[in-house]
């Protein structure tokens, strides 16, 4: 597998890159860096997956791109703008063009499903109510939940909540959508539908999409490019064909789902024997 796809990393024009991370390092506290020098470059209109073990920092990457966290080192740019240099207004202006599906949905519990999806439209547009109604029902229809419009978030299952959150993330037809685990908790049917939906949105509206996921099979079906993250670094990357053909340890471990391999299953800790010896 090549180190990088030349078409992806070396674009002809810099504005063709929707999101770029260069040498980004970040840690929630000084002693334990979560990301250590991440380089990523996501071209406009592409659907890119970020994969990696639980706790490797995928959600953190999305928060960095959205400007909710600041990198301790490195540069992040979205549509050619350096996120770190933006003030609050600039950041908000940028976020209006970004949709984000949160890992746990983060639906507003005081609003109905309908109002949740209508929320960004009501906040950022002056559309008349009838139009908002039609738009919301369309978005809900796309995720198969038009019938659930009047339910409260507390009445939804985990998978349903995530699909509503997905409808909300795309409510304003953003130029960049970040999906944090869109497939978790979905049955195989919804999973396939949501996967296709993400792909279709990406192509029909010319959206750039970033999907964080564990689901290698679904990703291989829909994405254009995959980054593998482990221990704060990009350890492998490539198109789905390259990934399937790859013989690299990380990639094989993911594709085959083996517990042993270069990706550590355990959170860093003392050896097990030592731990028990102390307790005893």
């Amino acid at each position: 597998m090549p180190a990088a796809n030349p078409a992806v990393v070396a674009p002809t024009c810099p504005t063709e890159i929707a999101v770029e991370l260069a040498g980004v390092s970040f840690g929630y506290d000084r002693n334990r860096p979560v990301l250590a020098g991440i380089d990523m470059s996501i071209p406009r209109g592409k659907l890119v997956a970020i994969m990696g073990g639980s706790g490797c920092g995928k959600t953190t990457i999305l928060r960095l791109i959205g400007g909710q966290l600041r990198p301790q080192q490195g540069r992040i740019s979205v549509a050619g703008q350096d996120v770190a240099t933006l003030d609050r207004d600039g950041l908000f202006a940028m976020r209006r063009k970004i949709g984000m599906l949160f890992q746990f949905g983060a639906l507003f519990t005081d609003l109905s499903v309908f109002e949740n999806v209508a929320f960004p439209m009501r906040e950022h547009t002056k559309l008349p109510d009838e139009l908002i109604r039609d738009l919301v029902l369309m978005k809900l229809n796309a995720v198969g939940l038009r019938g659930a419009a009047q339910l409260r978030p507390s009445e939804l299952s985990g998978g349903m909540a995530r699909r509503v959150a997905l409808a909300r993330a795309i409510a304003l037809d953003p130029m960049l959508v970040m999906y944090d685990e869109p497939f978790a908790g979905l049955d195989p049917i919804s999973l396939g539908v949501v996967g296709q939906l993400i792909r279709k949105l990406n192509d029909a509206l010319g959206i750039t999409s970033v999907v964080v996921t564990h689901d290698i099979y679904e990703s291989l079906k829909i994405v254009d490019y995959i980054y593998f993250v482990s221990e704060g670094r990009i350890v492998a990357q490539g198109t789905p064909q390259e990934v399937r053909a790859s013989s690299e340890g990380f990639v094989r471990q993911f594709v085959d789902g083996a517990p042993d391999g270069p990706v550590p299953f355990h959170y860093p800790a003392r050896p097990l024997v030592e731990e028990f010896a102390r307790a005893g």
């Binding site: 908000f92 984000m100 949160f102």
Partner: peptide, 18 residues
């Protein structure tokens, strides 16, 4: 506090709503 815990405030910020 619960809105914060369930990331609703975070989501709001990401939607450019303060």
């Amino acid at each position: 506090g619960l809105m914060k815990t369930t990331e609703q405030l975070s989501a709001m910020e990401m939607m450019a709503v303060d």
